[in-house]
């Protein structure tokens, strides 16, 4: 049974009408140690099936060490939401269920547009920062 029902797929198709540039989703899971993480892999693969501008790449968190390191993946399951040419550093950890599924869809749309939605004064202030800053948002699945 698919995780994304036909009804949800229909809504997603409409949402993804706003896609501008292609988006790559790299998903990291580990079937042996954490069978539940395979759900994230399935979800991402099903998402990619909804719109051809979204592509899914599946990796094993334990075996694909090189990819884990190059994308800075810290734990499993993980989804890296990246533009075709630019990685904005957006990573989602855990199963994006309930409200967090919407967050994933929003992240895809933001990356696709290349627009953070931040105001001009905020962008100007951020330009002045030269040190990398790690921002983490913690939530619980609903």
């Amino acid at each position: 049974m698919p995780l994304i029902t036909d009804e949800v797929a229909g809504q997603l198709k409409e949402e993804f009408g706003r896609l501008v540039h292609p988006v790559r989703l790299a998903v990291f899971s580990q079937a042996l140690a954490d069978p539940e993480s395979e759900q994230v892999k399935r979800l991402v693969e099903e998402l990619a099936n909804v719109d051809s501008r979204i592509t899914a790449e599946s990796y094993n968190f334990v075996l694909d060490k090189e990819k884990v390191e190059s994308l800075g993946i810290r734990r499993s399951p993980a989804i890296a939401v990246m533009g075709a040419e630019k990685d904005y550093g957006i990573r989602m950890y855990g199963l994006p269920s309930g409200y967090e599924f919407g967050t994933l869809v929003e992240a895809i749309l933001d990356v696709s547009s290349g627009d953070s939605g931040l105001s001009d004064p905020t962008r100007a202030a951020l330009k002045a920062i030269t040190t990398p800053v790690h921002v983490q948002v913690f939530s619980t699945p609903t």
């Binding site: 950890y93 921002v135 983490q136 948002v137 913690f138």
Partner: peptide, 22 residues
């Protein structure tokens, strides 16, 4: 959050959403 107890503990996550910068 409950999925990663070590991380939740490291950043003292007792209520969500919580944002940690740096």
């Amino acid at each position: 959050m409950t999925g990663y107890p070590d991380v939740a503990q490291k950043y003292h996550i007792s209520s969500v959403p919580k944002t940690v910068v740096g």
